[in-house]
Design a protein around this nucleic acid. Structure first.
Lengths: 123, 123
DNA sequence: TGAATATTTGAATGATTGTTCAATTGAATG
DNA sequence: CATTCAATTGAACAATCATTCAAATATTCA
């Protein structure tokens, strides 16, 4: 991501629909809120992480299990689990040497369902 | 993203819960479906694009308007509009020199709402 | 046709990110 | 206490991506 360098095109001086621009600008949420939201969707925006979420929506699993299902190294899986944990989409529970992961959100499933609906209809 | 080089940790030989692994593996969706889904969430996974979607959820707008609201160049906005168009989240309508954009999906709003719900509760 | 303006496009660049590899941590067990 | 194994972590590298800048399209209007 780059910084805002205020290099605006001619459009800035020639606002086409000043009323709409004012009205919408007033309703825009603050940047922090938007950034948090973007962070959340980033967690969904990767095949590996989506597979992990899908697997966990079926069953609680340990890191080894997930690695076996995805046919990936447990290191790679662990790195992605951290992202999902930070987004608070999953929770972990240690039992001896083994760490079990499970979905930690009612929204995960519904966000996934809405996504699937969209790509099904947008054919 | 890197290729799958089949470099699996020791976990591959020592599957901890073979039953679960088999059961979940059988239910996993195919890679193409997962990739499509990841593409969709990528469209939401950026502050600029989220702002555009939020703005369009309030009103239909032309590129200049969006650029003014986000205080960005219309070039940058146009590049991001292309991503949203390819994900079929928005649609465009040309009227003379001006191109108007609008949300093109009932799911956009509900996916955004679910996301907001999540970050509100995950405090 | 030629000027003006909204939008798009392509190349370049700096930043971010997913995976690998090697090393480390944490817990059980002999 | 040393060993074993599951899991995590940090650095490095390649790939992806968002923005900028310059140039090209598309449309209106004189």
């Amino acid at each position: 991501m780059k910084k805002d360098t205020n290099n605006l095109n001619q459009c800035e001086t020639t606002i086409i629909h000043e009323e709409d621009v004012k009205r919408v600008s007033a309703k825009m949420p603050d940047d922090e809120h938007i950034r948090d939201l973007a962070e959340l969707y980033k967690a969904f925006a990767d095949s590996t992480r989506l597979k992990i979420l899908t697997a966990l929506s079926i069953s609680e699993l340990c890191v080894c299990d997930i690695a076996a299902i995805l046919e990936m190294s447990s290191s790679a899986v662990s790195h992605q689990l951290r992202v999902l944990r930070q987004a608070k989409l999953i929770r972990d529970r240690r039992e001896g040497k083994v760490v079990y992961y499970a979905l930690d959100d009612n929204h995960v499933t519904s966000i996934l369902l809405q996504g699937k609906e969209h790509i099904r209809e947008a054919k």
